[in-house]
Design a protein around this nucleic acid. Structure first.
Lengths: 146, 146
DNA sequence: GTATACTCTACTTTGTCAATAGGAATTATA
DNA sequence: TATAATTCCTATTGACAAAGTAGAGTATAC
């Protein structure tokens, strides 16, 4: 698995929207500032997330973005796969792996499958509600320490 | 983690050399044919593997390549990291991850670290001796089934 | 000395990533 | 209705790496 800037922005954007879930709309401008992304690039990412059914939007004055599902219903794995594609370390399109007749090559395929499974076990079991809780817990620690 | 053709070729080359360990030298030509790689590209990979201390070579007529350590002493993880670099899904060079002061960003760093650890647990615990055994076991199955 | 093989460096092609740009469409509100 | 704020859509660019190509140079067995 590889995570590009695009995927990174997407995850941070969804987390920010999760933090504002059931509260207010978030404008692209504010979002871009908080997650430190170029606004025009972020707009494209948000458009993708919209097509993927993760995000909704309201146009015009006082418009903005919001999550289309509850944070508990969105996992990190869903976002990553949607933006980055399959998480396998090697593409199965590569013919020597999809059509695994030669034993020399087949042994590696098993390894990539194990890695892929281990990765999925992690990213598919973290929801954005989990992340919101972590952020809030972190904030409390910060508040106490002051 | 991402595995490019270069890494793929490197792994297959080392496996092929492992299958010939303590037997005979393997020429670049033969190697390229068996693992289905462009010879001139494979030569560069083998040169890298030599610099990394995994492979030795003999020049001239009846020259070729051989492993510089026993297959049991080489892991898949070593080869991958040497050829592809770090296995983390996201680069720690990205300042928001190396300098993790903002909680919004920090929660994802933990996930990438878990993925990275899970990946290492797999690839660092497979030696090329393991792979040789698998190949030989596969060959026996094939022999019986005929 | 010649065929065979590895060594080294440079180059090319192709594709993706990340960002930039500019306008079109939509909507609240003064 | 005009305007400001906002999302939507498409095109383009610059940088970089991945994958392969090329050719000359060096070593060695026979």
């Amino acid at each position: 698995m590889k995570v590009t800037f695009k995927g990174d922005y997407a995850l941070k954007a969804v987390l920010d929207l999760a933090l504002h879930y059931n509260k207010e709309l978030v404008t692209g401008h504010d979002l871009a500032q908080r997650i430190d992304a170029p606004i025009k690039f972020l707009e494209q990412v948000l458009l993708d997330l919209k097509k993927g059914g993760f995000v909704e939007s309201r146009r015009g004055n006082i418009g903005g973005y919001l999550l289309s599902k509850a944070p508990v219903q969105i996992t990190v794995g869903e976002i990553i796969r949607f933006i980055e594609g399959p998480t396998e370390p090697i593409s199965c399109v590569r013919e020597s792996y999809s059509n695994c007749t030669d034993i020399h090559r087949c042994v590696f395929k098993k390894i990539w499958q194990r890695v892929s499974q281990a990765t999925s076990d992690i990213i598919d079991n973290v929801t954005f509600e989990d992340l919101v809780s972590q952020v809030n817990a972190g904030r409390q620690v910060l508040a106490y320490s002051i």
